[in-house]
């Protein structure tokens, strides 16, 4: 099945009902997308499909046919959001960080605190109390 993964066209053979999360981690070797619950509650597996944040644990692989999927690896490591998370202590244990950054991406540059809190309500972090994450997202 053909889709666009981090700006490259890829052809991946996997069961159409396999979770996108597992396809990314196992077939594509992209382990930056994490599993925290499998229920769509924690947001650790957040990736973008056609620029919209989704939980990859709730997406059947078949549904990304011809779509653009962006994972944390697609940001390259030096994206302003990534730099801001590093500088502001937004990443502690780091397991929620890729999902948090992917959920923050659609919020655009320098979003308001209210927009950040609402936009990240689907991403759980147990380390930071979110304060450092707000500082990072608002800075980027």
């Amino acid at each position: 099945m053909i889709f666009t993964l981090n700006a490259a066209t890829v052809d991946v053979d996997a069961h159409p009902m396999k979770r996108l999360l597992d396809v990314l981690r196992e077939e594509c070797g992209l382990t930056g997308t994490k599993e925290g619950c499998g229920e769509g509650e924690c947001g650790a597996c957040t990736v973008l499909i056609d620029d919209a944040a989704v939980c990859a644990c709730l997406v059947p692989f078949a549904q990304v046919r011809d779509a653009r999927v962006t994972t944390i690896e697609g940001l390259g490591g030096d994206h302003p959001l990534q730099r801001a998370f590093a500088e502001e202590g937004g990443a502690q244990c780091g397991i929620c960080t890729p999902g948090m950054i992917m959920a923050a991406l659609p919020l655009g540059e320098k979003p308001s605190l209210r927009k950040v809190r609402e936009g990240l309500a689907g991403n759980l972090c147990r380390c930071t109390g979110y304060e450092a994450i707000y500082r990072a997202v608002r800075k980027a």
């Binding site: 981690r25 992209l30 382990t31 930056g32 997308t33 994490k34 599993e35 994972t71 944390i72 690896e73 940001l75 390259g76 490591g77 990534q82 730099r83 998370f85 590093a86 500088e87 202590g89 937004g90 990443a91 780091g94 397991i95 960080t97 890729p98 950054i101």
Partner: peptide, 21 residues
């Protein structure tokens, strides 16, 4: 001082390897 965390770069890049990875 707030020096850079030793593990920030890998964590924000999604490159840090957890056991399930």
């Amino acid at each position: 001082r707030n020096v850079p965390r030793k593990d920030s770069a890998e964590k924000v890049a999604g490159a840090a390897k957890y056991v399930d990875d």
